[in-house]
Design a protein around this nucleic acid. Sequence first.
RNA 1: GGCGCUAUCGUCUAAGGGUUAGGACAAGGCCCUCUCAAGGCUUAAAUACGGGUUCGAAUCCCGUUAGCGCUACCA
Length: 592
Amino acid sequence: MGGLEVTLGGDAGQLPVPNQGGQILPIGLGADHSEGHDTGLLRRRRELGGPVPALHQQTVDRSFPHHRQRGGIGGVPSGGNPVGRGRQDQGEHHTSIVGRRRCGEPRRKPSADRYNRTLMHRVRFAPSPTGYLHIGSARTFIFNWLFARKNNGTTILRIDDTDAGRNTDASLRSIYDGLNWLDLAWDEHYRQSERLELHGKLAWAIFDKGLAYRDFTPAHSGDDTPDERKGAWLFNPGMPDMPRAESDRRAAAGEPFVLRFRSPRGTGHTIRFTDGVYGEQAKQADDVEDFALLRSNGMPTYHMASCADDADLRITSIIRGQDHLSNTFKHVLIFDALGASAPEFAHLPLLIAPDGAKLSKRKHGPVVSVLTYRDAGFLPHTYVNFLCLLGWSPKNDREVMTRDELVAAFSLAGVNRANAVVNFTDADPVDPKAVWLNSQHLRAWPLAELAPLVRQTLESKGLEADADEAAFARKIDVLRSRYATLEDFAAKGRPYFSDIVEMEPEALAKLDVPGARELLRELSPKLAALPEYTEQTVEAEVRALAAGRGVKAGVIINGARAALTGQHAGPSAFAVFACVGRDRAVRRLAGV
RNA sequence: GGCGCUAUCGUCUAAGGGUUAGGACAAGGCCCUCUCAAGGCUUAAAUACGGGUUCGAAUCCCGUUAGCGCUACCA
């Protein structure tokens, strides 16, 4: 397999692989090609008569009958019920364990062998470390994870780092940080830079079959002006007709070249596959250019590395952004050339900005980073929940869902086809619906799990979280009913967790009610003298004082909230007394 | 330019030929109330446009327009 310079990424493996649930497999050939791993699909493919010779002659049907089909049976357009927009299905019922049995059929206990052969779903999330973890990437990961969970499958994290020039450690770290924050574990982990040998081997195998050729044309950048490319849809026409002998000679002489796939143009071939979301897809091979497999430095391109790994890692379902929908035709070609069975594909609608443009850091700032939401005080699960709702619907009007509910409800059949707008503005980088969702989860979240998160938030802001767990939990419980994010505990919650009280103008107004300050100052020593300081005893004291002076209790109540917190809005004043604590309450009342 | 994909309230979405086109966020109003939230009730708000097919179209077909994606030795 000459010609390939294998450059193992210098720092490969240096970064700590996160503490995610899964085992960390030794990088390398994740799965062998022995018969033992052969799946029904692969067998079926081989029975089709060997993919390579068949490639240019026949149209290979890649429909996956157990998957969602929109439109007629098998996607065949039939008079009154064409393929178009029809939605059918059953989708996931046919991909899940349970769904495999027919209605009414008693559940069979699958044997281990049966399980492995027919029910093993393997999905992968393959980010490239060239930026921070993008909100769209996070969503792709979540959908993959959900799909795997739902179908009892395996989630694989694969770092697609074949573009050494653009990879950064900071980016890798951001991906792991973001993924760890989401708290969704993966089961296996790989780095493409450690599998270059495989990519090269498979690329040259394609070359050996005559399905790829060396192209010695100098690199042509894609940045040309539109008029420069008028009429020519092919940037790089390649050198498909160069005799093998000349090609070998020039390569041997050290002339740089890219390895190009020989697209079956002019054969009338139609490339087809069934997308789990977009349905039947077809494209004339004539419309597919001779794309590169190997760069002149020997590194594989995305298409090559991705397909080689998907085949080698026995990925069964590729769930990724719709920006790869067009690329999938190339991938189908590669899988065919490899003699591998193609996985099933499902493409997700893209996340876009309110202006309709795709989300980019340059144009839209920090919204695009997952870490923005983390830093804004969102619960990880809120973010998961929120992202699920962008482009997917359980179709039952449910929106606030736990993780288990999401898994139970998830189905590719619920995935929408139109791009979804993430609703944000320059003033507020966060989608208002996400804020609302967070407030919902914040109220329902188990206190035991919430407390450490609040504690962390407070401490990172230099505030004092209560040492007493029970007291701390009670405070959180009181406050969370009117907070929306963890950050609110540090911002609005400051007077509850520190000695700092900033008076709002509206709060001052409450104190300026005639007689209020005097009453509050009078209340202070009474509270100090209370044998027991609780919501009840404080309330009794307050009401007694009001009655004794012949004023409405509201004067003291609202004044007290203002005096204790500096805020005019907040929890029930008596809850505030309890939360602030006796010492601070007495002091703050006295100083009013 | 070529190819592919998409089009329901401001935003996320439901409705798979027959509904007053439903829900949620955001916005307005009312109730509740010790403030503010929450909660309950409520108002306003949409089928891009034009042709078909059909007794009947948001839904199926065609076209137009618009947006997005791919068209790189990026992924």
